[in-house]
Simulated scan of single mutants.
Amino acid sequence: MQTPQLDNFLDILHDSSISKKARLIYLDIKAESQLTHGLYYGTDKVLAANFNMARESISNALTELERSEYIHRETKRKGLDIATRTITPLK
């Protein structure tokens, strides 16, 4: 019998409805969020550097993950600027 966390890990690996890029990014976000009380604070720029991808590719993958209900993004603004952005893994 597998643990719930392992089941979730295997679910994302075998979910062919999302791209391989999105799966890889999700696994990184999930791992990092374990160190910060379930939230991921990295920016698209940080993820792009980590995966050697364009920021647009990261943004597209995050949108894909959000539509598939793997993550929830919350952005807090201060005027027109973004003050903080958090990503919460949902699965």
Rank of each mutant, 00 (worst) to 15 (best):
58 I>P: 06
62 L>S: 06
79 G>V: 06
55 R>S: 12
72 H>G: 01
69 E>H: 12
79 G>D: 10
49 A>P: 01
83 A>E: 13
80 L>S: 09
54 A>E: 15
77 R>E: 06
78 K>E: 13
46 V>D: 13
47 L>N: 08
75 T>I: 15
72 H>T: 06
73 R>A: 07
79 G>R: 09
70 Y>M: 02
80 L>C: 01
49 A>Y: 02
50 N>H: 11
73 R>W: 04
55 R>Q: 15
77 R>A: 08
47 L>C: 04
56 E>A: 12
51 F>E: 06
58 I>Y: 06
61 A>H: 05
79 G>A: 04
76 K>H: 10
69 E>N: 13
82 I>S: 01
55 R>M: 06
53 M>Q: 14
52 N>F: 07
84 T>G: 00
50 N>E: 12
73 R>L: 03
60 N>E: 13
71 I>E: 04
70 Y>E: 03
54 A>P: 00
68 S>W: 01
80 L>N: 15
64 E>F: 01
48 A>K: 07
50 N>M: 07
77 R>C: 09
79 G>I: 07
54 A>Y: 08
61 A>Q: 08
49 A>V: 02
56 E>T: 14
76 K>Q: 14
64 E>C: 02
83 A>L: 14
65 L>W: 05
62 L>C: 12
52 N>V: 09
59 S>N: 13
60 N>F: 07
56 E>H: 09
72 H>A: 11
84 T>H: 09
65 L>T: 07
51 F>P: 10
57 S>D: 14
74 E>L: 15
76 K>V: 14
67 R>V: 03
67 R>W: 00
73 R>T: 13
58 I>L: 07
67 R>C: 00
65 L>V: 04
58 I>W: 05
66 E>Q: 15
54 A>W: 03
52 N>E: 11
61 A>I: 03
50 N>G: 00
78 K>P: 00
53 M>A: 12
49 A>K: 10
53 M>Y: 14
49 A>G: 04
80 L>P: 02
55 R>Y: 01
74 E>V: 14
57 S>Q: 14
47 L>M: 13
47 L>E: 09
49 A>I: 02
82 I>Q: 01
63 T>Q: 13
65 L>D: 04
52 N>H: 12
46 V>N: 09
66 E>H: 04
64 E>R: 09
77 R>I: 11
81 D>I: 10
55 R>C: 03
65 L>N: 06
83 A>H: 06
52 N>I: 07
58 I>Q: 08
68 S>L: 01
71 I>P: 03
